[in-house]
Computed example of a mutant assay.
Amino acid sequence: MPVFGDPNRFAIEHELDENHGGVWMYGSFCYWCGGRRVGDYELGASLRDVLFQLEQLAKYYERLRANPRFDSMSASAVFHTLHTAFYGETDDDTFALAAEEQWRRHEVIPNVDVFDNWKGFLVESERAARLIFARAPHVEVTELALNSGEFDSILDAAISALGKIYEHEALEREIMDERKR
């Protein structure tokens, strides 16, 4: 079970099932945040789908997930502002502001079943990052201090590892398909 990062800070863990279904890559997946498992690891997931979701999150590498609007806000205020903008009822002005300032780049929990009960956001500056997350019903909000870029470097390592597995399984599938012809 590979773990990327430090589980006492931030880490990503995955494990491929013995009978993983080839390119579907069935297995288990979670984040570790401050020594706490985030996600339903035991539920299991298609690590292929996780990979694709992580690749979407990685699109924001080029630009820090920074926004001065959130710098002085409490973790709870940041969480509820972003959560409401994406998942709640919000007014047109807030919706337009979220689109203009690209708030979606702050969302860092992949949209897969193991995270159905979790939401999380990353707000960075040049020197520091705040990973802010909560489990449904999203009342108890937790903030984890990270270094700027720390989340993305761990995300990159997990994407690389899962990508290698996917490439291997896709090649195996091609070979099997060729043999059938």
Rank of each mutant, 00 (worst) to 15 (best):
A66Y: 09
K180W: 13
F115Q: 05
V141C: 04
E100Q: 14
E169D: 04
D40W: 10
A58I: 04
C30V: 04
D49E: 13
S153C: 11
I154R: 05
R69K: 13
P7D: 01
I165E: 11
M25D: 00
H14D: 09
H138A: 07
A145C: 08
T81A: 09
L16C: 03
G39F: 06
F86M: 09
A96V: 10
F29A: 04
F29E: 03
S46P: 03
L162D: 05
A158L: 04
A58Q: 14
R9H: 09
K59D: 13
A170N: 09
A98D: 00
A45Y: 03
E174A: 10
A11E: 02
R135K: 15
C30I: 04
V139F: 10
R69S: 06
R104C: 12
V50P: 00
P110V: 05
Q56T: 11
R127H: 15
A58C: 07
E174C: 08
C33F: 11
N19S: 11
Y60G: 09
E15Q: 14
I154P: 06
S125K: 06
E101Q: 14
T94I: 10
V139I: 15
F29H: 05
T94M: 12
G44S: 06
A136H: 15
R135I: 08
Y31R: 06
D6Q: 08
S125P: 07
L171D: 10
D17E: 12
A85E: 01
E140A: 15
L54T: 03
G34I: 06
T84Q: 10
G21M: 01
H83M: 02
D92F: 11
I12E: 03
P68A: 08
S125N: 12
N147Y: 14
V38R: 02
L144R: 09
R135T: 09
V114S: 06
R36V: 14
M1D: 11
L57Q: 06
V23P: 14
Y31K: 05
N111C: 12
V141D: 01
H106Y: 05
R9P: 00
R9G: 02
V112I: 13
S76P: 00
P110S: 04
A45C: 13
F70E: 00
V139A: 14
I165N: 08
N147C: 14
T81G: 00
N19D: 15
V50A: 03
Y41L: 09
H138D: 07
